[in-house]
């Protein structure tokens, strides 16, 4: 290493990975349902995609991606819940990798709920 710029490059690369280990009450929590039903419906690629996106965009100091068990809506799995501190919880259903990227872009970065993927948008019977 010869320059400060090189040090900065390593820092930026590592910051998001080490940032995953922060403990903060103000974290936005993104929770993926990972019970048997969720896994069977394809929750794991969604989880890994979300986690990867968050880290690549340097959001780990604000957003934590975690898992949870079955919330009882097995038919709508994979389910992803987004909990921004101070805002109502948003539940996304029937997620896949593409939708996950969109949620990161529009909701977590842009601040707008992606209405069409939410539980409210379906006609629940």
């Amino acid at each position: 290493m010869k320059t400060l710029a090189e040090l900065k490059a390593i820092r930026e690369k590592m910051q998001n990975q080490v940032g995953l280990r922060a403990e903060d009450h103000n974290h936005t929590r993104v929770v993926v349902g990972m019970a048997t039903c969720g896994i069977a419906a394809g929750a794991r690629p969604v989880l890994t995609k979300l986690s990867q996106e968050i880290q690549e965009r340097g959001l780990t100091e604000k957003v934590a991606v975690t898992q949870t068990g079955c919330i009882g809506l097995c038919q709508y799995e994979p389910i992803v819940e987004v909990m921004v501190p101070g805002e109502p919880k948003v539940t996304y259903i029937r997620m896949n990798e593409e939708k996950a990227v969109e949620v990161v872009n529009r909701h977590l970065v842009g601040g707008h709920v992606v209405d069409e993927y939410t539980l409210g948008a379906t006609d629940m019977k």
Partner: peptide, 10 residues
């Protein structure tokens, strides 16, 4: 690299 990631050597 992990040390640098937390601001090490800055």
């Amino acid at each position: 690299d992990e040390y640098i990631g937390t601001g090490g050597y800055e």
